[in-house]
Design a protein around this nucleic acid. Sequence first.
DNA 1: GCGAGCATGTAAGTCGTTACATGATTCT
DNA 2: AGAATCATGTAACGACTTACATGCTCGC
Lengths: 194, 194
Amino acid sequence: MSLRYAVLASLLDGEASGYELGKRMDVSVVNYWRASRQQIYAELNRLHRDGLADARDELQSGRPNKRVYTITRAGKAALRDFTVQPSRSHAIKDELLIKVQAADIGDLPAVIAGLEMRHTECADRLEIYEHLIESYRRGRSEDDYLASARRIGPYLNLRRGRDFEKENLAWLEWATKALRNRLARTSPARAKRP
Amino acid sequence: MSLRYAVLASLLDGEASGYELGKRMDVSVVNYWRASRQQIYAELNRLHRDGLADARDELQSGRPNKRVYTITRAGKAALRDFTVQPSRSHAIKDELLIKVQAADIGDLPAVIAGLEMRHTECADRLEIYEHLIESYRRGRSEDDYLASARRIGPYLNLRRGRDFEKENLAWLEWATKALRNRLARTSPARAKRP
DNA sequence: GCGAGCATGTAAGTCGTTACATGATTCT
DNA sequence: AGAATCATGTAACGACTTACATGCTCGC
């Protein structure tokens, strides 16, 4: 049921088609709930059926037509009700960390390569967050922005995303170094007894 | 398919029954993949069926008997193969953050209360992580530990968990303050025009 | 006496992923 | 020529949650 409210919350940023929303709710932009396009299309239909979103068909030339959705008053009310409900702790699911957990028994060079790949992904996301934060602030100081902006929720989440990516980068570098040291000490020894 | 490897990785910490593993893989202890007990029972059965885990029944008095599982050679090989596969970026799913995103339209005091509740949860988890890190190190310095320990994967993940909880606490405090300021500025104004 | 912890599971239902289908346009 | 972007969806499958079932012991 959370997907429903994640989609509604995303519609607060303005009307959107399913496709656009799919990009908005991509890992690189949204750090509160990512969803696949197929999920979003289905949820938008349900939202419309339940009167929480209005839909209108926009005819386009040279590309397929699209359905543009807007959050309704009832949608906002439902979202408001949701904010009062207790939240369960987030789900922690990260394949890379399973590999780190099993690194000592696993293929060390492969795990290290995985950490490095994640590092570049994180760095890319960090850059996106930094740019978004800048474009939200438009020169204002943070306190200024928080005092004057119409909405601050998206900004709060953006900063969380940025801080987490930074933290993540630091950890990835540290963990990579630790596994590299281990590799240097264990693999020459193994090589001597084939 | 990742649950399978998460369970195998948890079995590297030693043999365990489904119930024990359920506690090991709880949010408070494991930060790489949390799973419900029902999921774990089912996965252990499959693991045993596929020869990746050995099972033995342990008769107990005064409490129900239990099935204790051990990872097999084939299980370790499967886990090793898994470490070579590419990892997808983790799933970001946090109900609380949806509420933060919608905070401006939602019930501000409720969102603030939610952040505070999460704060105590994080503080509790942080304490657990700190204690676990201490018990892993047993007085040794970090470099010393990383150089001498038989396995370092669990320690790397533990530090990640600790750092993330710390970061999280800082963000929660900052976001709470921002939403409190907003509440102070908006609710007296509203109260004047009923 | 009652809830919490120990211990394992089934069944039903919801949620989410992957593959497939279609088809024009623009970039490399 | 082939891939990527725009655009929406269906169908099948797999993952995950929630509720239910059972039953004994220990502490309050």
